[in-house]
């Protein structure tokens, strides 16, 4: 039965990919769609990112502004603040997405015609790219649910939890080692 399910999955995957191909090709053939981003777009995108990074990140995702608004502003302003911060955070996320997209599209434009293309390297880059896209989607979901302030709080909690788990595992392994050392031979 599992064999049949695998075969059905293969068939459905093929149908899905063909649908994707049909849609992508239609988009690519529309006159206003540029085929690939030009090489010049990449350095300017990086540069713009570098300039904005330091000053903006802590303001968007940090708790300072939010705590101030929480203590000194009425509910309506608090709501407005959260809404605007969320929009800025989403914009920031879209910048990261487009940065990754530009990098991979330039690579694709150059490598697809290259005869010396290395499959393992290509696979690694593709995985890297899709992992960034996946992380962006997860971050977007957190932002949508809890807003930008929740993101760092959540990451902090997860980090704390993983540290605790690590500590517990270390303790458990030490206890096992101690027990095996103190076992009396019969």
């Amino acid at each position: 039965m599992s064999g049949a399910l695998i075969l059905l999955a293969i068939a459905l995957l093929l149908i899905g990919l063909l649908g994707l191909l049909l849609r992508r090709s239609d988009f690519a053939s529309s006159p206003d769609a540029s085929p690939l981003v030009s090489d010049a777009a990449a350095p300017s995108a990086y540069q713009a990112f570098e300039e904005r990074r330091g000053e903006l990140l802590d303001r968007i995702f940090g708790p300072d502004d939010w705590e101030f608004v929480l203590n000194h502003a009425p509910k309506r302003v608090q709501r407005l603040f959260l809404q605007e911060r969320k929009e800025i955070a989403f914009y920031w996320l879209s910048q990261i997405r487009s940065l990754a997209k530009i990098a991979i599209r330039i690579h694709i434009a150059h490598s697809r015609k290259s005869a010396e293309l290395r499959p393992v390297l290509e696979l690694r880059l593709a995985i890297d790219y899709f992992m960034i896209r996946l992380k962006c989607s997860i971050v977007a979901a957190i932002l949508w649910l809890g807003g930008p302030v929740a993101l760092r709080r959540m990451v902090k909690q997860v980090g704390g939890l993983s540290d605790e788990l690590g500590g517990m595992l270390e303790l458990a392994s030490k206890r096992d080692a101690l027990q095996s050392e103190t076992r009396v031979p019969r």
Partner: peptide, 11 residues
Amino acid sequence: QARAFLGKAMR
């Protein structure tokens, strides 16, 4: 670089 920016936003 994109990954680093994403990490910065979270931590």
